[in-house]
Design a protein around this nucleic acid. Structure first.
Lengths: 129, 129
DNA sequence: GTAAAGGTTACAGTCACTGGAAGGTCAAGT
DNA sequence: ACTTGACCTTCCAGTGACTGTAACCTTTAC
């Protein structure tokens, strides 16, 4: 199948597919005589896998490790566990940081009663807090 | 004061100060005869303001609007309110997305009981879910 | 014949910096 | 006078994960 067909089946943009090939995440497909990329069924599976990982906000480096692990039948499940656990920890850390941010912003947002910029308590707080 | 002094007082790197000047967020300071940047007291205030906004994860474009608003005594407080409200909404949206991500990853992390990569339920789930 | 749709490559831009190279300047110590 | 080291300058490239654009070629339909 051609690149746009793969793109629409796997729900990934054509640009992104070429980008994944360029960085070595997706192996280069065979080319037709006109130079067009020609993909196999298994490429759908790989690409969908990558897309799901991206939806989980996993970085391309880690996805590459997951894809490689998958392709090596001798490799261990523990590696996969580790990557997922790392991602989970990262997201939880981000959540904690965002909760703090939200508090600060909410406090700021509710504090300004003034109409004049000189007295704006938001700006005062940001300057001196 | 020289750039490194400003940097250490305002807790911003020298690189970052030059970058802020380059993008027009910080106005260009006067130069000494040797070409060194020479900063005034008020630059500390501006830079600290910018740093605090960055700590709140506000984008440089929005910070520029806040700085400009601050420097124009005729401008209205409502603009400031709007920017802060937007940032708050953005952070809350991100929090909702992260909560969903966390759920998915936590479900994945706990599902794999296998030792062999062929049976790894994490990978199975990512392929087909 | 021609126009639209889809394929190819290569380069630039995003955001908010950061790193590094190559060179000029300054202050202190020998 | 000389050297050393810290600090200053500019400019260019890299980060992550794409996306936009340009310029060009191929296929398909009318």
């Amino acid at each position: 199948m051609k690149i746009s067909e793969l793109a629409s089946i796997a729900q990934v943009s054509v640009k992104t597919i070429r980008y994944y090939e360029q960085i070595g995440l997706l192996s280069a497909p065979i080319r037709a005589s006109n130079g067009y990329r020609h993909y196999q069924e298994k490429d759908i599976e790989t690409l969908v896998f990558i897309r799901r990982c991206r939806e989980l906000n996993i970085g391309l480096d880690d996805i590459k490790r997951l894809v490689d692990t998958q392709q090596d039948p001798k490799s261990s499940c523990a590696l996969v566990d580790n990557i997922i656990a790392e991602q989970l920890a990262r997201i939880q850390q981000t959540q904690r940081e965002l909760a703090l941010l939200e508090q600060s912003l909410a406090a700021l947002a509710s504090c300004c009663q003034s109409q004049q910029i000189q007295d704006c308590s938001i700006l005062q707080t940001l300057k001196s807090s």
